[in-house]
Design a protein around this nucleic acid. Structure first.
Length: 678
DNA sequence: CAAGTAATTGTTTTT
DNA sequence: CAATTACTTG
């Protein structure tokens, strides 16, 4: 493995190593026995992982023998490009197999489709999952009101938990949805059908990608080949893996040779998705010869910020973060506000003040527990003309037209894709749930070859429209060149959008933009599946690209802020009920996860950290006129924690928030229409 | 069986 | 105050 002829010149590796502290260096230089790096927030985890990769390349390891698994696509690209820049040969770094678990799974599954009994791979997103289960519910006669079943969403959640935690359906229902225990057998039967139907139609949901990967690894034949493919497996954010991912990693590296995992159990925030912080510790026990390296020197934050972080830090692996930076910086600020409007106004004030003092908006972020917490703030920022970009939170409604277009791609690529047919059919006038269900079954069985049958079976009022859609889609197939295929689909979807959405204007334009992006792809199938795996691309940035060079503020959920850092962090809504979320208070495990989330939030800050606590909050998040009731500060702001902070209150009498002031201007506007009625 | 109207729910976090 | 769901009508 060492001293190969294909030594990659890594000119910068020496420089990179020079900047590392002894613990980091130990991790980077470690041999091929299993290595667990317990890395506190801001301790240079990314740096260590990339330096280790660069070091491996330098020592002659061919890049394609390295597999680098991360949790988000952002982290994956950051890490690969960093490794590339450490190496004299960026091309070599690009040959490293890397990405999120799901993205890598998709690649491997597509490659081994025939071993899984699949013609090709179609990935469906969580919304399609609900659609498909809904379809089956109707087939089971379980869609009426007389049968009380959990919502389809909950049933999908149950399915996900079952596979992600390797727990039987009944046990999951007992733990997570005890109120639905009576219907456990019906739910199990429904889910068996769901699995069967996916198999028949060649559909894979996000969980299936991991299931399929695990099955391939477990197969004596294919598994051996996959194991032989990589000598080095590196996993980032290991505290966020679930049971399936654990089994994949262990299956790829049964003896732990060449395995490196990096994580921090205090930052485990995905238990709701089946992850368990315990997996990090389990790994140390699973591999008796594993080496544990702790990184405790923090290169990110000032000591006063770390003092607070250490105070609230949960977790079993004992770590105390020590700042590497010279003693400087003030204590974190605890800003008590009167209510939600006051909070929004105060945050905007302090952001602008920091901006004047030389911290650009780019270097500041407002973090929140839940996407909806920033509602008032967003209005305030708009009124004041402060540009911002919000990450996290889900806007499915705004993306439904995008998903319509993707559905049209998918039926062309895989005519058996029943869910996508269903989706497209319901966009037609006079086709509702019931007709769509029968028509989808026809089309999924025979594709556009059975277009005539489908049209004949459709309600009379729908026939013209449906015939037109099917002939447009029928003009192309998998073998058609991508731009032509995309254009045919766009043409088929366009009239549907116009007929179905009141605000079709905006949507049609957006769909055109996406069609352009799709037409530029070399492999449409991969593009479509990636949209299911990483829908951020769809919901987010396309529309906002032109403004990238402007200075804008980041608004983000804490989950989406993970692994990122800013000079100034504003943590809003630090109230009981919001943080911890009252949804999580039913179990002690839920509360513990909220505390880790709080810790993640605090440790994003480099120089200044402001924590905002309104004393009053609206009874309902979206109700503008809802009355405010007293709100308690977060229970995580304990006495010892507060002692490490600078307390500030907004003045008792504050001016009206900008938004209300704007509406309050008592100006009578004359309309010019009187003449018309003369 | 689909579309329109009235009543009643309500909301974490994301690959 | 919305957005989904339950009920009515064409």
């Amino acid at each position: 493995m060492s001293g190969g002829l294909v030594t990659v010149a890594c000119v910068a590796v020496g420089d990179a190593l020079a900047g590392l502290d002894p613990a980091q260096l130990e991790a980077v230089e470690h041999g091929d026995s299993p290595l667990v790096v317990a890395a506190g927030a801001g301790t240079g985890k990314t740096r260590v992982l990339t330096a280790r990769v660069a070091r491996l390349l330098e020592s002659g390891v061919p890049p394609e023998r390295i597999l680098l698994l991360t949790f988000t696509r952002r982290a994956a690209s950051a890490m690969l490009s960093r490794a590339a820049s450490l190496c004299g040969d960026p091309q070599a770094a690009q040959r490293i197999a890397g990405g999120t678990f799901h993205a890598v799974a998709h690649r491997i599954v597509a490659e081994h489709a025939q071993h899984l009994g699949l013609e090709d791979v179609t990935v469906i997103d969580p919304d399609d999952v609900t659609d498909l289960i809904d379809l089956l519910r109707a087939e089971h006669g379980l869609d009426g009101t007389e049968v009380r079943l959990p919502t389809t969403r909950s049933i999908a959640d149950i399915a996900s938990r079952v596979v992600n935690t390797a727990t039987p359906v009944r046990a999951v229902i007992e733990e997570q949805f005890p109120w639905a225990l009576e219907q456990a057998d019906q739910v199990a039967a429904l889910l068996r059908h769901y699995r069967e139907r996916k198999r028949v139609r060649g559909l894979l949901d996000l969980d299936d990608l991991l299931i399929a990967w695990r099955a391939l690894v477990a197969d004596p034949d294919v598994g051996a080949r996959l194991r032989a493919r990589w000598d080095w497996v590196l996993v980032d954010e290991y505290q966020d893996v679930n049971q399936l991912q654990v089994e994949i990693v262990r299956g790829l590296s049964p003896d732990g040779r060449g395995l490196t995992v990096v994580g921090d159990d205090a930052q485990a925030i995905y238990a709701f998705r089946g992850a368990s912080a315990g997996h990090l510790l389990d790994l140390i026990e699973a591999y008796p010869d594993a080496t544990l390296v702790r990184l405790q020197r923090n290169f990110r934050s000032t000591q006063p910020i770390l003092d607070l972080a250490n105070e609230v830090r949960p977790g079993e692996v004992k770590l105390r973060l020590v700042a590497d930076r010279p003693q400087q910086g003030g204590r974190p600020t605890l800003v008590t506000c009167r209510n939600a409007d006051d909070e929004a106004r105060t945050i905007a004030d302090r952001i602008l003040a920091a901006h004047v003092d030389g911290t650009p908006l780019r270097s500041q972020a407002v973090l929140m527990r839940t996407g909806s917490h920033s509602a008032q703030l967003e209005v305030e920022l708009k009124v004041r003309g402060i540009p911002f970009h919000k990450f996290g939170g889900i806007g499915y409604l705004e993306t439904s037209h995008v998903r319509d277009l993707l559905a049209s791609f998918r039926v062309v690529l895989n005519p058996a894709d029943e869910v996508s047919w269903y989706r497209l059919l319901t966009r037609h006038r006079a086709i509702g749930k019931a007709s769509a269900r029968t028509l989808a079954a026809i089309l999924a069985d025979g594709g556009v070859d059975r277009a005539a049958d489908a049209v004949a079976a459709a309600p009379a009022k729908a026939r013209t429209g449906l015939a037109s859609t099917l002939s447009l889609l029928g003009a192309v197939d998998v073998t058609t060149a991508v731009p032509e295929l995309v254009e045919a689909c766009r043409g088929a979807v366009d009239p549907l959008l116009r007929a179905h959405y009141p605000d079709w204007n905006r949507r049609v334009t957006e769909v055109e933009g996406i069609a352009q992006a799709a037409a530029a792809q070399s492999d449409l199938r991969t593009f479509v599946s990636e949209q299911a795996i990483d829908p951020v691309n769809v919901a987010g940035d396309w529309a906002k690209q032109p403004h990238l060079d402007e200075d804008w503020l980041t608004l983000s959920t804490i989950h989406s802020a993970k692994g990122l850092e800013w000079d100034a962090v504003h943590l809003m809504r630090a109230n009981d009920g919001a943080m911890p979320s009252d949804m999580a208070l039913t179990s002690s495990a839920g509360l513990a996860e909220e505390q880790r989330l709080f810790y993640v939030a605090l440790t994003r800050a480099r120089d200044t950290l402001d924590v905002y606590v309104p004393s009053q909050l609206p009874t309902h998040p979206t109700a503008f006129l809802a009355k405010h009731v007293a709100a308690k500060p977060s229970r995580f702001l304990t006495e010892p924690a507060r002692a490490l902070m600078e307390a500030v209150s907004t003045p008792a009498l504050t001016p009206e928030p900008a938004v209300k002031a704007a509406f309050a201007v008592p100006r009578v506007c004359t309309d010019a229409f009187d003449d018309l009625f003369a």
